[in-house]
Structures are given as C-alpha cells and as structure tokens.
Design a protein around this nucleic acid. Structure first.
Length: 945
RNA sequence: GGCGGUGUGGCGGAAUGGCAGACGCGCUUGAUUCAAAAUCAAGUGUCCAAUGGACGUGGAGGUUCGACUCCUCUCACCGCUACCA
C-alpha cells in the first residue's frame, strides 16, 4: 500500500471502531462528563447535504479531543423523522410514510458512518420509533396534567388547582371545565393558519408573509385546536436565557420573539354621559375588575402617558364587542368590512401597510381622563390576538394611528413635546398635526400632568388609574400560545380520548389515555392523503383504532396529530437513557449528564426549536422530571455553506452584452433592463472570461460590461448542490472533514470550492509521505523517520504546534488549527531526519480532525491500539517561547528596521540598541528624537522631527 | 420599515491596539519527465525612477506614539423579521 488511499483506509477503520465499540459512552462516573450534541437531521429523501457535516465535524472534533483529554464523552445522533415533507414525499411516491422514512434514515446513517463520526450509535433515537413516541405522548400528558400557578410561577399537577367556591357550587361539569381551561395543553377555538394546499393548520411560527414554508398561501379560519400554554412561561423563558452561553444575536432574537412589553390596561366606557358617570362612581369604590363589563372596551397601551391625546379608538374586526356597538346605520359597512377582513389572507392584510383601512362603528366611548366622547372604529391594523384586541389611538404619537387619522380625517392632538436636545422632529409640525412624534419627552396639554417626563408620567398615571378603578399596570407578550395540532397523518397521535354518549355524540368530556396504555400507535391507513377538509386523515382509521371502551364508556380517539417540533423538544434527554422502558429518563443519569455542554446547529432554529425545547424542559423541571432549568448550556450556530462562486453576465434581446448594474429583478422574479424593462438573459461565465478592474469584475473582451460575481445558496434548481458521497469517493472522508473545517470560521457562511478540497487532500498526501515510504510495496515508514532524539529546533516546532492546535480546538478555531498543522508538515518534510517520537505526537494532534489517516499512521508507527483514548499531548511552555526575537523599529509608526534582541531585555537596553541601529541612525540624521516608545519583546517606535 | 451579521490580494481566509495578508487555492518561473500528471524548489497586494520608496483592510472623519482592530457618520451585500399598540 504505497500511496495514501482513503478509499481503502477509511472503511477499514470505520469497521474497526464499530467492531471494537470504540465510541461507546463510558459509564465510569469518576470521569468528568462532556455532552456534545448536534441538532439531529430531518432525514429527507435527498440524503445528506454538505451543510450537515460542517456542524457534525466540529462536534466530532470536540468529542474526540475531549476523550483524549480524559473526559467521559456523550456524543449521540438520531433522526427527526416525523413531519410534513416526508409525508408529502411519501404521497408523491405512493409509499407509506414509515417505509419511506426508514429508508431515508438508513441512507443518512450510511452517509454519517462514511464520514467517520464518533457517535455512540447504540443510543440512536428516531422521533418516529414507537418507544420514543410513547414518551413524547407521556410528556404531552404531563402538559395536559399541569396548570401554571401564577403566584409561584411554577407548573403544578392539575389536582392541586384550587377550585373557586362559585365554580364548585356549579357542579362537577363546571369543575372539569374550569380545570380544562387551566391546563398547559388545552383545546381552544383559535384563528388558525389554514393552508388549503397542504390540508393542514400551521403554527404562527411556520407562516411567513402569509405563506407556508413551501410557499403555499395560508388563510385564517377559526377552528378548535390543541394549544400549549407557552405564554405562561414567557417570563421565565425570557429571564433564564441570561443564564446560558449562547450567541448574543440568538438571545436577542428569542427575547424579541417573546416580546415582553410593560404598559397599562385602561377601560373605556361605551355609552352616554350619565351612564358613564354612574359607572365611574362604581369603579371608584369597587376597583378594576378582572374582566370588563359588557359595555366597556378594555385597551392595552405601552404609553398611558398619551391618554390625553387619545382621539379615537380602534378595535379588531374580530373583536366580540363589534356586534354590540355597531349602530344600525353603520351595520352594513361594518359587516362588509368584517367579511372582507376575514376572507383576506394574512399576506393580503399586510400587503400595503401604509394605506390603512377601517370603518366607523357609529359608537363613541368616553375617554376616562378627559371625559370626552371619542369615536370607535374597526380596522384590521389592530390584531385580535395581541393585548386586548382594542387600542386607544393617539395619532400625534403613534405612526400607525397617525396614518389612520390622516386617512380618515380624525383629530390629532399633540401631548408629548420632544426634549430640547431632541431634534428628530419639528415640534410645531407635531402641534399642527402635520408630523408624528413617537419618542419620549415632556407631557404637553395633559392637565395636571403637563410638564412631567414620559417616564414619571407613566408611573404616576398607572397608579392614578388604579386608584380610580379604570386601569392597572399590565405586561404583555408578543409570544402567543403554541398551536399544537396538525390535520395530518405523519405525526404522534394525541393520547386523548373524547367521551361519547349512547348515541355516539361527543359529550365534550375528555380523558387521557391511561399511562400503561401508551404508546398510541398510528393505525395502518390505505389512504393517508389529506382530503382538503378540516377533518384529519386519522378520522378514516378503522373503528377498532378509532373507538375505545373504558369502564363501559365509549370514547373516540383524538384524530389530530402533533407537529414535527414535538419530537425534537426532548430528544437530547432520551439519548442519556435511550432504552429505559420504565421512565423517560433515569433521574440519576439525568443528573450525571445534563446540561448539554455544547450544542451545534443552524441558526434557522434560533427561535422555534430552541424556544419550544426550553419550554418543555421547564415544564419537566417543574414536574420533577429533570434537575436543570435550561437544557443547552452552550450553543454555537454553524454558518451556511454556499455553492461555488458564479460569474453571471447578461445579454439583451439583441444578443448584446448588458452591464449588470442596469439589470433589475421584477416582482415575478424575471430579469429586465432597468431603463425600458426589456428582458435580459443571464449567461454563466467561466473565470477566464473575466477580469477585475478596480473593485468590479468586467468582461475581458469588453471592460465596459460589468459582471456579477456571487455565491448562491445551494439548491436543486440552481444545480449547485455538492453531494458528500461524491466528495468521499473522489477525495476521502478525512479530506471532506478537513476542508469543511479549513474553509473559514465555523460560524461564518462561506462558498464551496472544489479546488479547496483538492488542496487539503494535497496536505493529507504530504502528511502520508512525511511518514510513509510511498515507493515501497508494503506499508513501511519513510526512511527519514528514525528513532533519534529530536534537536532543539524540531522540539520547538513541535511544542509550538501542540500549543496552537490545543488552543484552537478549544476555541473552535479549526481553520487556524489546520493551518498550524500544515506549517508543521512544511517544516518536517524538509527535515532529513524526522524523529519518530515527534511523528507520533503529530499523529495524535491530527487525529480529531482527520481520524482515519491518523489511526492508519499510528498503526504504521507500530501501535496496535486505537489512538482514540491516547492522552492528548502536553506542550512545554519553555519550548514555545524563543529566547532571541526580532522586533520592528519604526519611526512615526512606519517600520524602518528590525533588531534582534534577547527575550526579556529591559526597555532601556532595547531603546539603546534601536537607536544604535545603522539604518535608524541614517534616517534620524538631522532630526531630533522627541519620544521613544518601547514595548518590551514587541516593538520600538521613535517619534522624531 | 426594524433587528442581526459581514466587508482585508485573483479566490477562501490570518492577525491580545504593535512587522497587514499566516495557511491554503490559483498563478509565474525553474528542476524532474520523451511528454503530461504528480512531485520538488523559488516567487506572487498595487504602483513607481526597484538592494529603495509610496500607497494599501468598503468610504469619510476622530482617538492614539501607533488603528483591520476602539469611537462617530456613511455605503454595499447577506440573513432574519415584519402593523404587537
């Protein structure tokens, strides 16, 4: 075996690791633990993408590095296998989703093994495994059995929910309904995002711009749905994020998504003045009720200090009071508006934010602080599911209200004056109603409050409103409860039964499937396709599945299924105790391994998966299943890998080249010339047709024609997808691993380059030839590799390399670690004597990055065991520091000469030596030295005039 | 519109406020070869009157003895998000 041949070496070592169970998780509890986790993949039919191995290689390097540092490493892998895309693909191919999914998992697993990742495969979990589904359903039942106690901020068993006396008096049914209203998993009528094309409802988080992730339009319809009360945990989700080591950007995204705001709720009476007076009097004595009377509109505002400027009100078209307050002469217009709003998709509603629409209801409410009647409008710019679904409009100080007031000629009253230092807006324009000022400032025309700062005003009025019983301080969140049911087949069935009466009609009562009857498996269905109606496919299940009898009572199973997120919310726990059939996880093992020390995955999961998982984890914490408040201690997002850089030129209809800055993209994604909108054709160009002039690329044959150069996202349609199988076949797994790490910083997005892969393969070839005799028939050492004592230079190179590589791996700086290994090889291939001991140490520090070639060389150097548990080499600090060093001498900050000094030389000595340097003496001739700055061991700077 | 990120040679990228461009790709020249590939050696930011010098980290200012690095403003690209009162 003369030449480096990864095709032979790599499968052989993969087999060795598997047969010797090299990467089985150690049970020795004396070792320090290290839990390093990848975001598990969704096993698509396409197979692994080159983006996947980026994060996986990073975590694998850490896992191997920590094993060599003597830690007990838990490094598992699994599959997020439920979900819409698999089901869609299965329908298209007409195979059952489970069969399709299992085939994909097998393929993914083959590809992952081919890359030599050191996963403990005995711990593999798939969210679709029936053993796994059992515990996902078990957690759902925990959510169902939990209510959130606001006073302690904790989730508690529903049996501990205090039942108010008035409910108790209404009987059992009332108590059941009361409990159901407080569960973390509850059924509610929600305006849902119904996607006709997919035949399912989607979560708010799965809808962007009124479209599904696949781009299908989404409508809003009311439907009875399972919801999870994540909003109860909003406060803790927001606060506890400060305790974890995550990128600041991701923390901010989560905080913004939770969207906590502080403000006040204020009640506006709808009716005539005398009724208002009476109401006001009652409120003064009785205080602010938990829900308003039927003739009262409750609003939420973050700017109670602008109450004097509230000149009208707006309620959402779906607001329950619309019917009641609409006057007869406005009824037709209001009804028409409501219908139009309901049939509009979210996308249409948002299409033109600047143009506001709305209709007057005919009614007036009384501003409780000015006692003036103000008109009530309905408009779709007020959302029913935020705050109270109603606002007080302050057009002088809110951009949206301002636009609306302008549109419908409503009065604008300025009540906040910018401070004298604030020149963001012209006050006289604001006063005249010509401009809107949304900042903070000084109260104006606000009764006794005039002159207060916004901050003081807010505090004062909150307490004044509370005293009068017409308002109170309130906190709101943008976060909504999590819509948790899907009208699809390929997901976990809900372990919930709906009670039926003798005629087979639902009674409205439900019960949980008893724990010992879990899991509820999916039934076999010949036809699992969605049919476009709201009824889920599981409704077509055989009666034997659909109907259950317990203690003589008949039940119908819940036929919705859980969303894909369910399984990924807790998989990191199951890896710790994957075979446990008595419990979700053994508490002793949970304490041993949690939290995850390093979690690596794509930033696209910044809010959804990571927020949902944290929510479940907190519920499990409250219910005593886990001991940690946060699951993922440290999070790192790997960047996106883009396709190879592409050069694109454009040709017009007349076949003439067009410069790229004249080309624009239209709304329907076609390319046209900016000046006359005539179509142009993109032409892919080769690098040799292009040159760079200044900061732009132009056509070599015509430098006036500018060319676009860009790396695009990999996509099937663009045809720039790189397949890991091909890279492994052509270059080897170690080359792929090394290249992905060498491309640049882990967290940056960067373009693929095939010649770059070839480059790192060249490095591995050089590593091989440094140690192995390439011309021999058998695998023998290169004749330069000899058992001699290394000389000092060689030792210095070695120890500097160990130091740099150790630190770089520790800080995930893999690209620079590889650069240091390359420098080592460049040095030692020039050495005619390569001490064997040094070669051995080198192989060890190479091994986390390129494990197959490292094992092979380790064995060639005469070792019989795997190097996976060899101690990580230590460096001698003395050998990493040179005793004589060359430092620059600059004049006026510009380097003019270099001097060689002994390390640690005093500043005075260095200064003398610098000023004595021939070149410096020459340059200083005729000048006066004003100042000399000496940084010992680094540099000298002379200031002279 | 809002938030976040990134701008350094032909390309990917390196640089605790202290020699800008480590390392790799590409390219040039040479050795080897019948030839090519591979390998090895030397070189490779731009410009100029070349053993030297000027300029140079998107742009404009600033702080500093000294700025890719810190501050202010600005431009471009990428990603996420979008009427949240």
């Amino acid at each position: 075996m003369p030449r480096y041949n990864p095709a032979e070496i790599e499968p052989r070592w993969q087999r060795f690791w598997e047969q010797n169970k090299t990467f089985r998780t150690p049970e020795d509890t004396n070792l320090e633990k290290y839990y390093v986790l990848d975001m598990f993949p969704y096993p698509s039919g396409e197979g692994l993408h080159v983006g996947h191995p980026e994060g996986y290689t990073a975590t694998d390097i850490l896992a191997r590095f920590q094993r060599m540092n003597g830690k007990a490493v838990l490094h598992p892998m699994g599959f997020d296998a439920f979900g819409l895309p698999a089901e869609e693909a299965a329908i298209k191919r007409n195979v059952p989703p489970r069969e399709f999914t299992e085939k994909n998992i097998a393929n993914f697993k083959r590809q992952l093994k081919m890359l030599g990742f050191s996963y403990d495969w005995e711990r593999q979990v798939s969210t679709t495994d029936i053993d796994y589904v059992r515990w996902t359903q078990w957690i759902f039942l925990k959510l169902y059995d939990t209510w959130f106690d606001e006073t302690t901020g904790r989730g508690k068993p529903i049996a501990e929910l205090p039942i108010p006396a008035d409910i108790q008096n209404q009987g059992d049914q009332a108590v059941i309904e009361y409990q159901d209203r407080h569960r973390l998993a509850y059924e509610g009528d929600a305006l849902v995002n119904w996607c006709p094309a997919l035949g399912t409802v989607l979560a708010n988080e799965e809808v962007t711009d009124g479209r599904s992730e696949q781009g299908h339009p989404v409508q809003r319809i009311p439907l009875r749905q399972w919801m999870l009360r994540i909003t109860a945990y909003a406060d803790r989700l927001e606060k506890d994020i400060e305790t974890v080591d995550w990128p600041e950007g991701i923390k901010k995204l989560q905080k913004d998504w939770i969207g906590r705001s502080e403000g006040a709720e204020v009640d506006f009476f709808v009716g005539d003045n005398s009724a208002y007076q009476t109401w006001h009097e009652i409120r003064r004595t009785k205080g602010f009720p938990s829900s308003p009377e039927s003739e009262v509109l409750r609003v939420y505002t973050t700017r109670p200090d602008t109450l004097f400027g509230a000149t009208y009100m707006v309620i959402a078209p779906e607001h329950p009071l619309v019917e009641k307050i609409t006057t007869d002469d406005q009824r037709l217009a209001v009804e028409a508006y409501r219908e139009a709003a309901a049939s509009k998709s979210d996308r249409e509603r948002q299409e033109d934010k600047k143009t506001k629409t709305g209709v007057f209801t005919g009614s007036f409410a009384i501003n409780p602080i000015t006692n003036q009647p103000i008109p009530i409008w309905i408009a779709d710019y007020v959302l029913i599911n935020y705050g109270t679904g109603a606002i007080m409009a302050v057009p002088a100080h809110d951009e949206r209200d301002f636009a609306f007031a302008k549109q419908f000629q409503l009065p604008i009253l300025a009540v906040v004056k910018p401070t004298s230092t604030d020149d963001s807006v012209n006050w006289s324009d604001v006063e005249k109603g010509l401009a809107c000022f949304s900042g903070e400032g000084i109260a104006h025309a606000s009764g006794d409050y005039t002159g207060s700062t916004t901050e003081n005003f807010k505090t004062q009025i909150k307490s004044d409103l509370a005293t009068q019983g017409i308002g109170r301080a309130a906190v709101n969140y943008k976060l909504r409860d999590w819509l948790f049911s899907r009208q699809r087949f390929w997901g976990e069935p809900f372990p919930i039964l709906h009670e039926l009466d003798e005629r087979g009609k639902p009674t409205g009562r439900k019960r949980a499937v008893p724990e010992d009857q879990l899991p509820v498996d999916l039934p076999h269905l010949d036809d699992f396709k969605p049919h476009g109606r709201l009824e889920p496919p599981l409704a077509k299940a055989p009666e034997s599945w659909l109907f259950v009898e317990i203690d003589g009572v008949r039940f119908r199973r819940e036929t919705n299924t859980m969303p894909q997120w369910a399984g990924s919310c807790w998989y990191y726990l199951r890896y710790i105790d994957p075979k446990n059939d008595k419990a979700l996880i053994d508490p002793k093992l949970e304490k041993r391994w949690m939290a995850v020390d390093l979690y690596v995955g794509g930033a696209e999961h910044a809010v959804l998966h990571l927020l949902y998982a944290r929510f479940w984890h907190k519920v499990l914490f409250d219910r005593g299943v886990v001991s940690t408040i946060e699951p993922f201690q440290r999070l790192v997002n790997q960047g996106m890998i883009l396709g190879e850089m592409e050069f694109t030129g454009y040709r017009g209809a007349d076949e003439q080249w067009v410069s790229s800055e004249q080309v624009i993209e239209t709304e329907d994604h076609s390319l046209v010339l900016a000046k006359d909108r005539s179509p142009v054709m993109p032409i892919k160009l080769e690098p040799d047709q292009i040159e760079k002039v200044g900061d732009r690329f132009v056509l070599k044959s015509d430098p006036t024609i500018r060319i676009e150069s860009k790396a695009y996202k990999m996509s099937k349609s663009r045809g720039n997808v790189v397949n890991p199988d091909e890279i492994v076949t052509d270059y080897g797994a170690d080359s792929l691993r090394l290249y992905e790490m060498f491309m640049g910083p882990l967290e940056a997005s960067k373009p693929w380059s095939m010649s770059g892969v070839n480059g790192v393969r060249g490095f591995l070839d050089r590593v091989w030839r440094m140690i192995i005799d390439e011309r021999a028939e058998e695998r023998v050492l290169n004749e330069s590799v000899v058992s001699v004592e290394p000389n000092e230079d060689q030792l210095r190179v070695l120890h500097k390399t160990i130091k740099a590589v150790t630190q770089d791996i520790d800080t995930l700086g893999f690209n620079t670690a590889i650069a240091r290994l390359m420098e080592f090889v460049n040095y030692f291939t020039k050495q005619s004597q390569r001490p064997k001991s040094i070669m051995e140490t080198f192989v060890l520090i190479l091994s986390p990055l390129a494990p197959h070639i490292a094992e092979e060389l380790w064995s060639a150097l005469g070792r019989t065991e795997s190097l996976a548990y060899e101690p990580w080499p230590k460096f001698d600090p003395d050998l990493t520091i040179d005793q004589t060093i060359e430092i620059p001498v600059s004049i006026q900050g510009k380097v003019r000469s270099k001097i060689t000094i002994a390390r640690g030389m005093s500043a005075d000595d260095i200064e003398q030596q610098a000023l004595a340097d021939i070149r410096i003496v020459e340059l200083l001739d005729g000048k006066t030295v004003r100042k000399v700055i000496v940084v010992p061991d680094r540099m000298v700077n002379i200031v002279a005039t």
